[in-house]
Design a protein around this nucleic acid. Sequence first.
DNA 1: TGAAATCTAGGTCGTTTGACCTAAATCGTC
DNA 2: GACGATTTAGGTCAAACGACCTAGATTTCA
Lengths: 214, 214
Amino acid sequence: MSTRGASRKGQERSEAILDTAERLLVDEGHAALTLRGVAQQAGIRLGNLQYYFATREELVRALLARVLERATAKLEKRMGAAGHPTTALDAALESLLEDQKEPASYRLFYDLWALAAREPAIATELRAFYARYVGAVEGLLSHAAPELSRAEAHARAELLVALLEGLSLFRSGTLGAPDPKVESELRRMTSWLSDRSSGGPPSGERRKQQVKQT
Amino acid sequence: MSTRGASRKGQERSEAILDTAERLLVDEGHAALTLRGVAQQAGIRLGNLQYYFATREELVRALLARVLERATAKLEKRMGAAGHPTTALDAALESLLEDQKEPASYRLFYDLWALAAREPAIATELRAFYARYVGAVEGLLSHAAPELSRAEAHARAELLVALLEGLSLFRSGTLGAPDPKVESELRRMTSWLSDRSSGGPPSGERRKQQVKQT
DNA sequence: TGAAATCTAGGTCGTTTGACCTAAATCGTC
DNA sequence: GACGATTTAGGTCAAACGACCTAGATTTCA
């Protein structure tokens, strides 16, 4: 409602504006996302930008919504694609890791994490996104290891997602670069996560599990 | 030194200013860290603040240095404290998890991650911090599992640190709250990380790591 | 074709920011 | 007491920002 753009051209313009804003946010950060800056980068006048997004907050809200919507779609596409048994998890992991080589895809999330810590509205939307994310991983885990309880699968999925998000820090070029050794250990760990041999009582000090490895 | 404060009082004032700035940064975020705001919160005049930190950048630089210095000290204290064998890792983990319940301690890092993605100077300092962090964890791992090669220990340490950083997102109140189930799985995972049974192919380099999974 | 949607070009307004400056007052210590 | 360190109180300046406005031009589409 707040966002105009009833015609096809309006829709396209609206999308183009959001594209520009997204690029600006990724490149320069949240503080540099100004109406004048977006208008200039988009090659339109301030008045025209404000015709579509009357206030800065409106623009940010629309931008966030679109970003998370896209991310969710991409995620579910990946998760649902490889419909095969235990390899689905590996395939999904591979795909996720590939994304992390693209700095742009994660810089934005670093800003979102910071924003979410202070703006409840953003935190809520991010929570919803990660709920889906964890849920999808939980599904893959349960599929790969049916003997896991729902709660266990959920806990492990959350751990795996947390691991991937944290790992992005070390892989997206900011704090480090992809390291084959780390990746190999990561794959070992994920296969362990979906291994049936670790279903025992929580009190167990250390369980002996052998990881099959040729 | 660009930062004045030669006398004892000067030192105290300087610290107080940084305290205020840090609190402001944590509470309101990087964009809200203005010289006037800091001065007001600190109960001093702008001129006085600028007597100590002439420019905003100078203030931010000093703030970052102090934060990372403190974090490093806290870290090494924790890591070095429990000098006992395999329990040292568990103790350190416990301590780290305890910190994550304090939102203030991590909100700041979310801002730093975002900043580091754009300002190389900040990225460099953060890298140095995480290098120590990973190094310390690597030491604990090597100690708990002496048969690990240095490279393996390092890779696993990086994984563990990444996991903890990512987990903070789900534990610091922003995207979620501490979950006993997740923590129990986390402990299982860390004990697995320092388990000798996962050494992989005997002593050989694994260039082609085929993750075996039928 | 005509109404609605889109876009331009320019402006105003109040506010905030960082940076810089000065003149004088107080504090602390040798 | 002297002298430097600290602090106040007030100011200026240019730049940027969000929000708001108008009046007209052009395009789109039913």
